[in-house]
Simulated scan of single mutants.
Amino acid sequence: MCTLEKRGNIFVLTLIGEDEHRLNPKLIKQILSALRQVRAESTRGTALVTKSEGKFFSNGFDLAWAAAAGNESASRMVDLFQQLVAELISFPLPTIAAVIGHAAAAGFILALSHDYVLMRRDRGVIYMSELDIGLTFADYFMALMRSKINSPIARRKVALAAAKVKADEAVKMGMIDSAHDSAEETVEAAVRLAEQLIGRNWDGEVYADIRKSSFPELCEVLGLIDKAKASSKL
């Protein structure tokens, strides 16, 4: 489950509850619905902060649901999550993930789909578990990691060593933006960053277009092929 609230010009999306926030079609659709509400209600100079409750930011896809639903339904879940990643990459406002618990597999991909990732240092890891459980990556997972994690050594550690990376190391490896001492400090830092960004009063569609232009390979894989450019105002 997730909730959406607006604090001034900051939208706050929260994955609620003490569970692992496993990404099944129900939760993915709820997040998509919340993002589309933000898109509809956003004005110039707004931002989104995504956070969670409990020990987990998200522990990835709901594998128990997928096993019960069958391969075809599981494949549709992966495709539906691609829509969520595409929504964030094309979102017309700055986005910040406040990762205050474990972010594994698709849960890390969800965080990485935001513009900024802030993480709690005293609890929680980044972990791409696919190698350990015998699954391959969806093509858009790898495209996102290539686009957002510049160091091939860092990508190797995450993808080919299935390393569980804590916040301070993730900062050093260039995978996240900052590490903070508690859940409260992580969320507070995310809100402060959001306030700084909305103070610039950027045009959201221009922001989204520049973001998409920054990640051409990812946008091609996601089907975001709109190459429209904002008109010059010289």
Rank of each mutant, 00 (worst) to 15 (best):
T3H: 02
I10F: 08
I10P: 07
V12S: 05
L13R: 02
L13H: 06
T14N: 11
I16F: 00
E18R: 14
D19G: 12
E20D: 14
L23T: 07
L23S: 09
P25E: 10
P25N: 08
I28Y: 00
S33Y: 11
A34Y: 03
A34M: 02
R36N: 14
V38F: 04
V38N: 03
E41Q: 15
E41R: 11
E41L: 13
T43E: 15
T43H: 13
R44M: 08
A47E: 08
V49A: 13
V49T: 11
E53N: 09
G54Y: 01
K55A: 15
K55I: 11
F57T: 02
G60N: 04
G60W: 05
L63A: 12
L63S: 10
A68M: 10
A69I: 01
G70P: 07
S73G: 02
A74W: 11
A74K: 06
S75L: 14
M77W: 02
F81Q: 04
V85S: 06
P92F: 12
L93C: 15
P94L: 13
I96T: 08
V99Q: 05
V99H: 04
A105K: 00
A106G: 01
G107I: 00
F108D: 05
I109N: 02
A111H: 02
A111F: 01
L112T: 00
H114W: 05
Y116L: 11
L118V: 09
R120A: 10
R120T: 13
R120D: 09
R121F: 05
G124C: 11
M128K: 02
M128Y: 07
L131V: 12
D132I: 04
D132V: 09
I133L: 11
T136K: 13
A138W: 03
Y140I: 08
L144C: 04
L144R: 03
M145T: 12
M145Q: 06
R146G: 00
R146P: 00
K148G: 02
K148W: 06
K148V: 06
N150P: 00
N150M: 06
S151V: 03
P152H: 05
A154W: 02
A154C: 02
R155N: 12
K157N: 10
A159H: 00
L160T: 00
A161I: 00
A161Q: 14
A162F: 01
A162D: 03
A163V: 00
K166L: 05
D168P: 01
E169Q: 13
K172F: 04
M173K: 04
A183K: 10
T186C: 12
E188C: 01
E188N: 11
V191W: 03
R192D: 15
R192I: 10
E195G: 11
E195P: 01
Q196P: 00
I198M: 13
G199R: 06
D203W: 04
G204E: 08
E205V: 08
E205Q: 13
Y207L: 10
D209K: 15
I210E: 14
I210R: 12
P216Y: 05
P216C: 07
P216A: 08
L218E: 03
E220Q: 14
L222D: 05
L222P: 04
G223Q: 10
L224S: 05
K227R: 15
K229H: 12
A230P: 10
S231H: 09
K233F: 10
K233R: 10
L234C: 01
